[in-house]
Amino acid sequence: MSLWGFLASVIPLDLLTGLKTTGKHLFARKATVQYPEQRLEPADRFRGMFGYSLERCNVCRACEKACPIGIIHIESHWEEYEVEGKKRKRQVIDRYDIDVKRCMFCNLCAEACPTEAVWLTTKTYEAAAYERNHALYFDKEKLMRWDGVKPFPGVKTPAEGGLPYFSLGGEKEEEQ
C-alpha cells in the first residue's frame, strides 16, 4: 500500500465530507409544510374533484364511454318541447352519477366532453371521507354542490359559475 493509500485509510476524509454535508443541512431552511395550517396551492391543471355543469351537459355520454373503469352512470329520457310552434325533442338528464371512490383521475372524461360540462380542475385534494360508499358517491346535485369536498379557497363551484381552468389544446378559458 502506498503512503497516500495508507494516509487516506487512516484519515477518514470521506466520512468527514459526509459529516460536513449533514452538518451544513442542520442549519439550512427546512422544507416541511405544516399541513393543516399551511396549504400548498395546487397547480391550475391539478386534477382533483369533479366539477359538473348541468346546463352545459348535452347528454352525449362521451364521458361515460371514455371512462376506463366505467364509474360514470348516466340516465336520461326524451322530452318534447315547443319552440316557435315547432315541436322538438331533447334529452333530459335524470341521473349523472360518478363513483368517485373508484376514480383514478385520468382526465379522459373531461377530454372526451365536447362541451366541457365535466372537468377535474377544481383544485380540491381533500376528498378523504370516513365512509366511502355514500360520502364518495356523487350524484349530479352533490357534484354541483360539492357536498363534503371543500374546493380550494377562491375557486368557484359549478353552481356559482366556476369553469374549468383549461381546455384541450392548452388555451386558458376566458374569464366570464
Binding site: 395546487p42 391550475d44 391543471r45 391539478f46 383514478m104 382526465n107 377535474l120 384541450l168 389544446g169 392548452g170
Partner: peptide, 26 residues
C-alpha cells in the same frame, strides 16, 4: 410539481395520447 403544472397529476400522470400529447406546455 413540474408534472403537476403540466398535466395535473403527480404520480399517475396519464400524460400522453395516441398521436401526441394532450396539452401544450403551460
Amino acid at each position: 410539481d413540474l408534472f403537476e403544472e403540466y398535466c395535473g397529476a403527480r404520480l399517475t400522470l396519464n400524460t400522453m395520447r395516441i398521436g401526441g400529447v394532450p396539452w401544450d406546455l403551460p
